[in-house]
Design a protein around this nucleic acid. Sequence first.
DNA 1: GGCGGCAAATGTACAGCGTTCATCAAATCG
DNA 2: CGATTTGATGAACGCTGTACATTTGCCGCC
Lengths: 200, 200
Amino acid sequence: MGRRNQHSREQQRDMAIAAAELILVREGFSGLSMRKVADAIGYTVGQLYLIFQNQDDLLAIINERTTDAIYGHLRDAIEGARAPEVRLRTLAAAYIEFAQQHSHRFRMLFEHQLPDDMQPRASSDSRIRRMFELVESCVAPMLPQATPAKLRLNATTLWSGVHGIATLAVSGKFKWAGDAGYRRYSDQMINTYLAGITAR
Amino acid sequence: MGRRNQHSREQQRDMAIAAAELILVREGFSGLSMRKVADAIGYTVGQLYLIFQNQDDLLAIINERTTDAIYGHLRDAIEGARAPEVRLRTLAAAYIEFAQQHSHRFRMLFEHQLPDDMQPRASSDSRIRRMFELVESCVAPMLPQATPAKLRLNATTLWSGVHGIATLAVSGKFKWAGDAGYRRYSDQMINTYLAGITAR
DNA sequence: GGCGGCAAATGTACAGCGTTCATCAAATCG
DNA sequence: CGATTTGATGAACGCTGTACATTTGCCGCC
């Protein structure tokens, strides 16, 4: 059949993204294919290529949404906390919690790489910046009289550490914590690092 | 043709592994296929399945070798260093250096996951343990009178942090450091974390 | 020495993948 | 109503992992 106009192009886009995210959650990165997405929304594969440039394009869009989801999750988590140390511990715990609860989305965010001949989407950089600025804003009260460069260095380093815990928690390579005892490690990271900062 | 006996099964295995690692280094995880490996060693695809259980089996073997390579690289790096802090900084820098110089191998080590119905190879756990024990042995002098549990907690947390930096350095998602300035972050991580430890 | 049997290696086949494109059907315009 | 544009399709190409029937070579036995 030709045009049915049952769904606008925008609607098709939204449907495809939603379907793709569902498949991603259920079957993981490697189980997500263009054909499955097309089937799920009742269109053919070819149509997907009139909506998205290619598969990498679709994956990049999903990754942007994951970044937003993480940001929202972090913002919500620290809403109630006032004390800087508590805010940071909460922030770290929320990040790791997200990684565990949405492991497939989290993994794809960091495992998928655009081919060299494809430039990243316009807004993707600023979204990541925004997340790091959230961290900086929580670290800032701990370093009242630090230069912006020092603040940046500390926030980036500390958050890389938290990210490392999240990564290992989700990689499945290490069963060190056995169960969901990652909170111990994130607390240990935050507490010790902050102690190291204030001990100067 | 049937048997040529030109290469023993062991030889074929070694050739296949070497060829696969070469392809991995050159083309990355997604560019590594059984057919390319078979072509590279002058055999057919079917023959590979008489040597390896399946592709996951081959990838798991390569990942074991990568783990060994990391361990060797770390051991060599700290050979000259005596002071605990220096040893730890060197260790961290060596880890990140490996990740950058062998990014494809490093990435596959953490991105590849065995399917649920496949049990991990016997020795894979102990190899990872060995690497963490190396870290513990460097942290130990900093915590003379800590319980083994405390020591373990600190070594794991600290190393997760270093791993996070390596992961981000290789992910290509963040160009924060721009060039190869990751040493700043690993030094910052080690220095601050150690300062936090001794400040108790 | 010829021959049967065994083992090694091959080639083919299948289902699924990303991607492209000629083709067709439906809606809009003259 | 007929022509044109446009939405959507389905087939095709080359690639992937994996399985398996088939063929090829070697070794021991009569």
